Amino acid sequence: MPKQLMKGNIAFAEAAIRAGCEVYFGYPITPQTELLEHMSMRMVELGRVFLQAESEVAAVNMVYGAAAAGAKVMTSSSSPGISLMQEGFSYMAASNVPAVVVDVMRGGPGLGNIQPSQADYNQVTKSAGHGDFHPIVLAPSTVQEAIDLTVLAFDLAEKYRTLVFVIADGTIGQMMEPAELPEMRPITNSKPSWAVTGAKGRTHNVITSLYMGAEELEKLNFDLQGKLQQIQQASEVRYEEAHLDGAEVVVVAFGTAARVAQTAVKRLRKAGLPVGLFRPITLWPFPEKELAALPQRIPSLRSLLVVEMNAGQMVHDVREAIAGQVPVRFAGRMGGIIPVPEEIEEEIRLTLKSTGLSLSNKEPHNGRVIAR
């Protein structure tokens, strides 16, 4: 299909529809409301199910019910709404049902503002709810990737019977770029064998997250951990590299922060500075092995610089992966402020100068970027 100019939120919605989404439940919250609005029109046009629930709590439990019945189901929200949904996510994880969640992140904590942020990183990658589980987490940096990763999310959810998050800061939800949509997948109406049943004449199959016996619940957890290990070992890690040849500093960033960092890296490469970019696309499973291998692959590597639109969350995963092989510095903006390329260029220069210093030392900076 030819490319068309699309807003990120519309791209998420239309990609989900074309991937076969049968049911959508949600509640409006900025900066993702256009996604819900598009679903309210298109799902009804196509004879599929759309319902604006009375709250995020209601929406996520509707998602749970539809997923348990075997429907291809999706919800979307933004940071405070995702917090309200976390109990439901935990129920779904324990029940091994597939669902797709789009989180268009905004500034926080609390109600915060409607500006773009990446401060949901810990929230979605470390559990997304109580208990020992992880959803798969995909992080687009363009409108085209918003489309491609949303389609992939439905495939992964069905393949592993798991939650899959597609997370993007508000910039990606609101920006407009040329993008190509996939063909519409047919709706088969066939239900998977594991789906809940109970109608007269059918074998009963109950899906639950309640396990009163400790041994029974431990077995569920062992099985769940086994599935998570399978996902980690099944080539589901995705990332992008640029300008790594001869790099002395590699910037690690995702989403909009990676777009800004890419501009800074290109400028400095033109100026002759040895700098590269590593962009995680799957935030869980995290590309830890690929990061850990960078010092061996790039003998010139002296340091990593992690750039995020938060106070420093992914940086902890980067430091754990790199395990002290080279120093790791952090630079970030908070409250919905997007860093500009000049700020990242300055931090890259400071990183080159600071190689060999204690990680606890703070370099001088412009007073706006958090740097450590």
Rank of each mutant, 00 (worst) to 15 (best):
V369F: 07
G336F: 11
P192T: 02
E308Q: 01
P192F: 00
M41C: 13
R259Y: 09
R372P: 11
M176N: 11
D103G: 04
P140A: 00
I136M: 05
F25D: 01
A68K: 04
L156F: 01
S209G: 13
V326G: 11
S190Y: 05
G213V: 00
S117F: 11
S127C: 07
L305N: 01
S117A: 15
R302A: 09
L5T: 13
N189D: 14
G129I: 05
A234G: 06
S79G: 14
S90R: 07
V23W: 11
W194P: 10
V206Q: 15
L359V: 15
G110L: 11
A292K: 02
L283H: 05
D169I: 00
I338H: 08
M39E: 09
E290F: 08
A66V: 02
R185H: 07
H243Q: 11
K72Q: 12
T203F: 13
V143M: 03
Q232I: 08
V265A: 10
A99S: 07
V101K: 07
N366H: 08
P178H: 08
Q4S: 13
A16H: 04
V73Q: 08
A67R: 13
K7C: 08
V102E: 06
W194A: 02
V60G: 04
H134Y: 04
L217R: 09
A58M: 01
P31N: 05
R269G: 08
R202V: 07
R259D: 12
V326D: 15
A311P: 03
P280R: 02
Q229C: 12
G8Q: 02
I82N: 02
P182Y: 02
V44M: 06
M43Q: 04
Y91V: 08
M1W: 14
A321N: 06
N221Q: 13
V49P: 07
A71V: 06
G107Q: 03
Y24E: 03
L35H: 13
L224A: 10
F222G: 06
S300A: 14
L36M: 15
V104K: 03
D148Y: 06
A13V: 05
P186Y: 00
A199R: 12
A94F: 09
S79K: 02
E87Y: 13
T125R: 06
P186G: 06
L220Y: 14
R48S: 01
A323V: 07
A264W: 01
P2Y: 10
K126A: 12
P186Q: 03
K353M: 08
T208S: 15
S77M: 08
M184F: 12
Y121L: 04
M184Y: 14
N361M: 12
E215R: 07
L210P: 06
H365C: 12
G272I: 07
A59W: 00
R18K: 15
V369R: 10
A257E: 09
Q233P: 02
V44A: 11
K266A: 15
P295C: 00
P182L: 02
L84G: 00
E216I: 04
R372D: 14
F254S: 04
V97E: 15
F330S: 01
G65C: 02
Q32L: 01
G129P: 05
F25S: 02
V307K: 12
T30F: 05
S95F: 09
G336Y: 09
T282D: 01
W194G: 06
G112I: 00
E347M: 15
N310M: 02
S79R: 12
S78C: 05
V124F: 10
A311I: 14
V124Y: 11
G108T: 02
S127K: 05
